[in-house]
Nucleic acid binder design. Structure first.
Length: 982
RNA sequence: AGGACUAUAGCUCAGUUGGUUAGAGCGCUACCUUGACAUGGUAGAGGUCCCCAGUUCAAAUCUGGGUAGUCCUACCA
């Protein structure tokens, strides 16, 4: 064993072994418990893992390893998502950069081939990152949302939903991304606040009509003046006295000179603006509804790129083509980009005196989450899922607790969306994705089926009827909604293997994911799964019993990590380290704007002047676990990572000490020099009592064994409750503050004592090794590599030669109540009190730690006598004493400095050496502190309300406290007097 | 506009059903190269638990109001 912990030397080798030996499989010897499963949220295949992934993966892996060690058939299902829009964009951009023809030029099939090529290349990034993170995923069943099996599942789901009447096609207004030229669903639209303008436009009244105040025009307000080319009406509120006489009259739409009616509709708000609203049903969601209610025609003035059309398309309010009305568009606007057209139209209206006013206006603009441009409501034919119907059981599942959110407050988010859900537009005008299994004949009739042949035979279509498959693909989230059961082999439920997997692993136990995809994914998985997967009683199965919602990983000042901010961190850089130059290149490479790159470079230099030093996977994982308090965003802190790297080093060195104590210096040094595990001999085993050789346990041994049981209980409890932070803290505390700080030190007086018997030494060596061995198993789910690495060396010494070849499959520790030892714990607490008291005096009085001291005890009770007697060895060594004596009543008391341990006084004679001022100050400070506490407690006890109503136990506790404070104060005051009298 | 979440040490955060002398890590101060570890050890300093009111014998914790911040949803003619 090396002197310092070097994670890079061991991590990758262990992972390879684990994977090769098949330890990640849920089906292997020793896993006889029930199934336990976690489905990984499939990362985008073209991407790479960021800190958020590392965080979520750590938690999933910790749970999986915990359950696997507990004997469950634990499956962590791995896979990636084809991410339609994102992937297609990436590949298109890459083709452009390489000067290759664009996708339209190369054709659909060729382009798809290119995407697959890219996927082969890019998919490896993610899987190799996952291996570095130590993820114990079942690689043998890795899935991809576009693989053959998934393709079948998606097709099957589409067809069945269509046949069930839950999927339909219709012409409606959808959110249209003019850059990507595809429809998107409402959840893919982000609303951004922006400063804009409100234009008040004058629409002249036709046929000489006038407003109440004698004007020959009415004023409408709009934030999108260019859409006026498609206006087909003006709405006023039916109750509005100002305009009632105008209902049914017409206005003459400027620029296009179209007569459009004034209609009464509640959508018009009397309080807002002028009370008159222009109605453009083809370009606004509200207007679309108003148009339908009032049978206004729809005029689409925009192309799919959101430019002004040469001639508008005209429809009736039911979506059918209307050839009667004119689609005329003035020549000068034809082909104009939408925002250019806005300027031109406003200018022309101004020229005609038709602009009443222009006001600044704060508005929120809909932006496509992928394309980043303003979304345009667009009238198109699309496929929809009847989400309202499908949401019902999914809502009930959360209401009745079949699905539980952790933290619970995310239920609100889920409910509020699900109870007001809109039908889900699932068709996308893309090439990369699951092509919609629908065919059209020349009359436009729709046939849905697995393939063309099936469609023909099912519908008795003759061979000469021409059929064309729908060009569109499905929303990526449509396929990922099937993730929990699609990955298990559905729909091939007749295959016994698939049936078994579904029985073992569905519903899954927990989904670990971010709150940002509750709508996109979690809700839709619930809907789809409950419709398709039923248990043996026909009851819909939920996809997961628990949804553990994580917060976001932010940077050290709480900003979201993003490429444009230049504050992203690659988890592998935390693990392996990275030089400043490389980090700069990584962060500023591929930057479009040089100015931004400069800013990012500056920030990076300031933040990481030396680059990043290597910390290892275990430290990274421990940090992420320790920071995972429920549902809170995490501000990433390199200091924290460093601290937990030190923790790993501590564990490493503690183990080194154990091995040195047990195997001897020679064996340990030799192994370190050769880089091999320590060669464990029979003698070493015998020295630890690995074969049941007799040993005697010291008080410290009994104590640490007892504390270990507590730690085991605690860590289990916290893991069961998804409190990874508390589990990590319990481990940290036990390993560092108890095992290392106290127990290892307490082992030395035994092991280094020439007078100690072999049985005593064996008892202590055995305890060192056994407690370490159990601790490693306890910590393994969070820090898999270091624990495996050390465990391999200690398992035999701990008498666990038959525990198997890997810690991954060793038993997870279970506390044994009979090993809890309250007396040992109380005794050691006393010992710690005395030792700390002595150290404290040393500190205050500037006595060097190397100087041996004489110690006097006074006022002890039976326990104090016994403890002092039994632990003399420990006391002498740890407090560095040369002499320890009891003062009896009436004994002459030498000039001393005092500390209190319970009732007992600990005195260090310091004739002539006392720093009087320092001591008096210290004592006064203690008295003052105690005095305040005493006052507080006495106030409480003097309050009849308290003494009458509080539980007796609480009152007794307060009384005890008061007595204790009083006693201590008296003693400290006496002490001051003595010192002053010097 | 509606809703959710957050506010505790210089920083990052714990604090379960009201009763703790309010904790941890990092940072800070002093001392220490003692035979696992300086990625270390020992001992310290450091808090108006955001503000105000209320409930209660008792509030960091429960209720109401306010302030500040984060986020979500909706709307914005």
């Amino acid at each position: 064993m090396d002197k310092t912990y070097k994670p890079s030397a061991l991590e990758q080798a262990w992972y390879q072994q684990w994977e090769q030996k098949g330890y990640f499989s849920p089906y292997q010897d020793g896993l006889n418990g029930p199934g336990y499963s976690i489905m990984i949220p499939p990362p985008n295949v073209t991407g790479s893992l960021h800190m958020g992934h590392a965080f979520q993966h750590t938690l999933q892996d910790a749970l999986t390893r915990y359950k696997r060690m507990d004997g469950h058939k634990a499956l962590w299902q791995v896979g990636t998502d084809h991410a339609g829009i994102a992937t297609q964009m990436v590949v298109e951009r890459k083709l452009a950069a390489e000067g290759q023809p664009d996708r339209h030029a190369m054709g659909r099939d060729t382009f798809i081939d290119k995407v697959w090529e890219w996927k082969e290349h890019s998919g490896g990034t993610i899987t190799s990152q996952m291996r570095r993170l130590g993820n114990s995923v079942d690689w043998d069943t890795e899935r991809f949302t576009m693989d053959d099996g998934f393709y079948k599942a998606v097709q099957e789901v589409f067809i069945r939903l269509y046949n069930d009447g839950l999927i339909y096609r219709g012409k409606r207004l959808v959110n249209w991304d003019p850059k990507l030229r595809t429809a998107i669903s409402d959840v893919e639209v982000e609303n951004h606040d922006k400063k804009g303008h409100m234009w008040h436009l004058r629409y002249p009244l036709a046929d000489g009509a006038q407003t109440q105040d004698g004007k020959d025009y009415i004023v409408v307000a709009t934030t999108r003046p260019e859409t006026m080319l498609g206006d087909t009406g003006v709405a006023v509120n039916p109750e509005d006295p100002r305009y009632q006489h105008l209902i049914g009259k017409e206005v003459l739409l400027p620029l296009v000179d179209r007569r459009i009616p004034i209609v009464a509709d509640e959508h018009a708000d009397m309080e807002k603006g002028t009370g008159c609203v222009k109605i453009t049903p083809a370009h606004d969601f509200n207007d679309y509804e108003v148009g339908k209610r009032n049978q206004l025609p729809m005029i689409n003035i925009l192309t799919f790129s959101a430019d002004i059309r040469d001639e508008a398309q005209t429809f009736n309010s039911d979506g059918s083509v209307n050839d009667d009305i004119s689609g005329f568009i003035p020549e000068k606007y034809r082909g104009m980009e939408r925002f250019a057209a806005r300027k031109a139209i406003v200018a022309d209206l101004e020229e005609q005196g038709l602009v009443d006013s222009i006001k600044d206006h704060e508005l929120s603009v809909p932006i496509g989450d992928r394309g980043g441009v303003v979304i345009e409501p667009m009238l198109t034919d699309q496929w929809y899922v009847d989400a309202k119907t499908m949401a019902k059981p999914a809502i009930e599942a959360v209401e009745n607790g079949d699905i539980q959110f952790v933290p619970k407050s995310y239920e609100n988010m889920y409910f509020s969306w699900m109870r007001d859900i809109q039908d889900w537009c699932i068709s996308r005008q893309l090439w990369w994705g699951h092509r919609i299994p629908a065919w059209y004949d020349e009359e436009g009739n729709v046939y849905v089926g697995h393939d063309e042949a099936e469609v023909r035979s099912n519908n008795q279509l003759a061979d000469d009827v021409e059929l064309i498959q729908d060009e569109d693909v499905l929303d990526t989230w449509f396929s990922s909604a099937l993730w929990t059961f699609g990955t298990l082999g559905w729909p091939n439920v007749d295959d016994p293997e698939v049936a078994q997997r579904l029985a073992d692993f569905h519903p899954t136990d927990v989904l670990v994911t971010g709150f940002d995809i509750i709508f996109f994914w979690v809700a839709r998985m619930a809907m789809m799964t409950m419709h398709f997967i039923k248990d043996e009683n026909g009851k819909p199965q939920v996809p997961f019993k628990t949804v553990y919602v994580t917060g976001l990983i932010r940077d050290e000042v709480g900003e979201k990590m993003s490429k444009t901010r230049g504050n992203v961190l690659d988890p592998l850089d935390m693990i392996d380290g990275i030089s400043l130059d490389e980090l700069l290149a990584k962060r500023t490479g591929n930057m479009m704007q040089p100015k931004l790159a400069e800013k990012i470079a500056k920030r990076t230099q300031k933040e990481f002047p030396e680059g990043i030093s290597p910390h290892g996977t275990d430290a990274l994982r421990f940090t992420l676990a320790a920071m995972a308090s429920t549902g809170r965003d995490i501000n990433w802190d390199m200091k924290r990572l460093e601290g937990y790297r030190n923790f790993c080093n501590k564990l490493w060195n503690a183990s080194r000490y154990v091995m040195l104590s047990v195997a001897g210096e020679e064996a340990v040094e030799k192994a370190a020099a050769d880089g091999t595990p320590i060669d464990v001999t029979d003698d070493m085993k015998a020295a630890c009592g690995a074969n049941g050789e007799p040993g005697v346990l010291s008080l410290a041994d009994r104590w640490i064994i007892s504390r270990l049981q507590r730690a085991e209980n605690e860590v289990r409890r916290h893991l069961d409750q998804y409190r990874f932070d508390m589990a990590a803290q319990a481990l940290y505390e036990f390993i560092w503050n108890e095992y290392c700080d106290w127990y290892l030190e307490l082992s030395k007086p035994v092991l280094w004592d020439q007078n100690a018997s072999e049985e005593e030494k064996r008892g202590t060596r055995g305890t060192l090794v056994r407690v370490l061995e159990a601790t490693l198993r306890l910590a393994h789910p969070i820090i898999p590599f270091i624990t495996e690495s050390i465990w391999q060396q200690v398992k035999e010494l701990a008498g666990k030669a038959d525990a198997g070849d890997t810690i991954m499959l060793a038993d997870y520790p279970v506390a044994q109540p009979e090993l809890m030892d309250a007396e040992a714990e109380a005794d050691i607490a006393w010992l710690q009190g005395v030792i700390t008291a002595v150290r404290n005096i040393r500190g205050e009085q500037n006595i060097p730690p190397s100087k041996p001291l004489e110690l006097l005890f006074k006022n002890g009770d039976d326990d104090d006598f016994r403890r002092a007697e039994e632990n003399q060895n420990f006391l002498m060594k740890l407090a560095k004493l040369e002499k320890l004596t009891w003062l009896n009543d009436g004994d002459e008391e030498p000039m001393s400095v005092t500390q209190l341990v319970g009732n007992m006084e600990v005195l260090i004679p310091m004739a002539g050496f006392i720093d009087k001022d320092a001591e008096v100050t210290r004592l006064n400070k203690s008295i003052e502190k105690l005095g305040k506490e005493l006052e507080r407690v006495n106030n409480k006890l003097g309050n009849p309300g308290f003494t009458d109503k509080a539980p007796a136990a609480v009152i007794d506790k307060e009384k005890e406290k008061a007595a204790g404070f009083e006693r201590d104060i008296v003693k400290l005051k006496e002490q001051i007097e003595k010192i002053k009298a010097l």
